[in-house]
């Protein structure tokens, strides 16, 4: 800080005193504000460590009782107090895979449309409309999925899928069974709609980092739009797209309410994706308030810990990828 008193004529003592007081106040405020913002930043770290610590402490009884077998046991029986996470982990992974398989091509397609094909005046409104899909609360997807989407699937779509794949060896096991409407596939499909805007808006952002001169020279050589996108835009932004996909995957893994409504909440691993199942988050949401006995609660907390560890890893990879494309854009 500049020493303001230097060179100031010493007119009368009081001014200097005021000045000194003001400077002291400034100095105090400055240090104080720095300290306050610093503590707020530390609070963020404390929160995350608190979350991890409390989940670990809460799941100790279950870890003691079931050990590593918890991860691979399918049984989930509150009556006999035997718990295993296999069905929930399986459901979480399978719904997320279904969601990604549907959402990646469509999300990237929307981003290509918005950044390359869409007429300029329509870009903003369509972009906002797609992003609004991310704003709709997940419970709304749940209620819509349960009352409107699932019955339609059950009546019109699933019987067709079952009979179509019924004669294909291998796939007939994946698509077998009566059409329930609710089940793993429905949950995955709704997750796909929910994470679509994450993939499309991040892809769109990273597409904007491609230098115009690269695209222009490709067009100048006579490339078609498909060739420009496939040979210039996507290779240049691959890391960023993967980052966006991982971010969407993190969302899909932890999504709770929408899935709880439509997955059917059955603790079993079934080969058919049309059958009801459960996910980690749906199990916690459904059973936590009704859980009696410390082992039951602890098993649910351990499920939460597993979910948190999985999403943490996925999100960390996502951030790492996005950071790399940001550095590339800054260069």
């Amino acid at each position: 800080m500049v020493d303001v008193t230097v060179g100031v004529p010493n007119v009368d003592g009081s001014t200097i005193l005021d000045r000194a007081k003001a400077l002291a106040r400034f100095k105090f405020e400055n240090t104080f504000f720095h300290f306050v913002t610093f503590s707020a930043a530390i609070t963020v770290l404390v929160l995350l460590s608190g979350v991890i610590l409390s989940l670990v402490l809460g799941s100790i009884p279950a870890i003691r009782a079931f050990g590593a077998g918890f991860l691979v046991t399918e049984v989930w029986n509150p009556v006999t107090d035997k718990y295993g996470a296999a069905a929930a982990i399986y459901g979480t992974v399978v719904t997320s895979i279904i969601a990604m398989v549907i959402a990646i091509p469509i999300g990237v397609g929307i981003a290509i449309f918005l950044s390359e094909l869409c007429p300029q005046p329509l870009r903003q409104p369509i972009g906002i409309a797609i992003e609004l899909l991310a704003g709709i609360p997940s419970i709304i997807y749940g209620i819509w999925g349960l009352f409107i989407f699932a019955p339609l699937l059950q009546q019109y779509v699933e019987p067709g899928i079952i009979s179509f794949f019924g004669s294909v060896p291998g796939l007939n096991l994946v698509f077998e069974g009566p059409p329930y409407g609710i089940g793993v596939f429905t949950a995955g499909f709704i997750l796909a709609i929910m994470v679509l805007p994450f993939i499309s808006s991040i892809s769109r952002d990273v597409f904007a980092t491609v230098p115009a001169v690269l695209k222009e020279s490709a067009y100048g050589l006579g490339f078609t739009t498909r060739e420009v996108v496939g040979n210039v835009v996507i290779p240049y932004t691959r890391t960023g797209i993967i980052g966006g996909v991982m971010l969407a995957l993190g969302r899909a893994l932890g999504e709770t309410m929408a899935v709880t409504f439509v997955i059917g909440n059955a603790h079993r691993v079934s080969n058919s994706i049309l059958a009801p199942g459960t996910t980690i988050s749906a199990t916690i949401a459904n059973e936590f308030t009704e859980a009696v006995g410390s082992l039951y609660t602890s098993a649910l907390v351990e499920l939460g810990l597993i979910l948190f560890v999985i999403t943490f890893i996925v999100l960390a990879i996502a951030r790492f990828m996005l950071m790399r494309i940001e550095q590339k854009g800054a260069q």
Binding site: V44, L45, R251, L253, G254, T311
Partner: peptide
């Protein structure tokens, strides 16, 4: 802090409930 904050931003909200 930035990294952890970004993780918290997308962390499953049900885990926050458990915490």
């Amino acid at each position: 802090v930035r990294f952890i904050n970004d993780i918290l931003l997308s962390a499953p909200s049900i885990v926050i409930g458990l915490f």
